[in-house]
Design a protein around this nucleic acid. Structure first.
Lengths: 160, 160
DNA sequence: TCGATTAAGTCTTGAATTAAGACTAAGTCA
DNA sequence: TGACTTAGTCTTAATTCAAGACTTAATCGA
């Protein structure tokens, strides 16, 4: 299967991966969340090949994850900002960061802490259920076909 | 920068991406969460090149995300199961799925629903603060260096 | 017994993608 | 005018991937 064919799959994860699923994109978005928005800054901080960065930024703009905004008219210069759709990826980023913290931080602890402005504490992210508010993990969930499931593509494996 | 150099970076996201950040790995893990655990089943359902699947599974086993477990002695056959560390990626997967649902589901709705066993409802994942329990989004968080930050690698941009 | 089947890979080849860094274009600054 | 800045484009060699044929070792069915 070619990469962009993923977009056609009847799976929200596959469709999301078609947008942000390559080796560099989430790192570019990390920088965007850290307010690094300019081409040269991104290139230097990430060590990414310029051609690849060009292509990724275009892809993200095309998919509405970033938008290209002029920050100077003379000379005309642009920066890349997260859209609302892009900000919606925060749970993914923070989830990966906390997984990395849990398994790869050295003895001293994580390199970066995250503070919740509202309560003032450094926190870990906790995934909870939108319906009952309790924490959710892999073992407490079952999956079943939704209204958008394509006929014939469900094999019943998960109906336990 | 080469891919595996990411592991050396002083950033939990980069370290996490070094393990699960390529085009296929999260799709392989999606299948693992859906209890698809055998080589041929994974290969067929994903349409991934067999050589690449071999390499990814080895990588995930090497990093303790999956473990290779014998399910038959004669003939000797193995399957790939999520470890506790692998189960810890559930927030990332569900975050991507819900982002995909929000932005790429068709008119009919998402292809797959997720039910919280404890309360019995289909749910969306909500990321909350471990300290105060309130929902958290990108705008309600600031980041600052933690105990594991390497001297000289922090540039102060985020201390707002 | 013997051929077919199954599972889990390995191998080969051509195509696509990436890393690294030189080069370019357009405008500003001293 | 000449140096500098920003945001790219271009080139080349190395790496990775897609597709699918092939392999190995054991079981199954006739």
């Amino acid at each position: 299967m070619k990469w962009q064919e993923l977009e056609q799959e009847n799976c929200s994860l596959a469709r999301a991966m078609a947008v942000v699923g390559d080796r560099w994109t989430l790192l570019v978005l990390r920088e965007a969340f850290l307010r690094v928005r300019r081409f040269d800054d991104l290139q230097e901080r990430l060590g990414i090949a310029r051609r690849v960065l060009t292509e990724r930024l275009r892809h993200l703009v095309d998919h509405g994850v970033l938008e290209k905004v002029a920050y100077s008219q003379t000379p005309l210069r642009h920066e890349y900002r997260l859209t609302e759709k892009g900000l919606g990826l925060y749970p993914v980023i923070i989830g990966l960061v906390h997984w990395g913290d849990a398994h790869y931080a050295g003895k001293k602890g994580p390199p970066l802490l995250h503070r919740h402005k509202a309560c003032g504490h450094d926190f870990r992210s906790v995934v909870t259920c939108s319906e009952c508010g309790e924490p959710v993990d892999a073992r407490s969930v079952t999956s079943h076909p939704g209204p958008g499931a394509r006929a014939g593509e469900w094999d019943g494996r998960l109906t336990d």
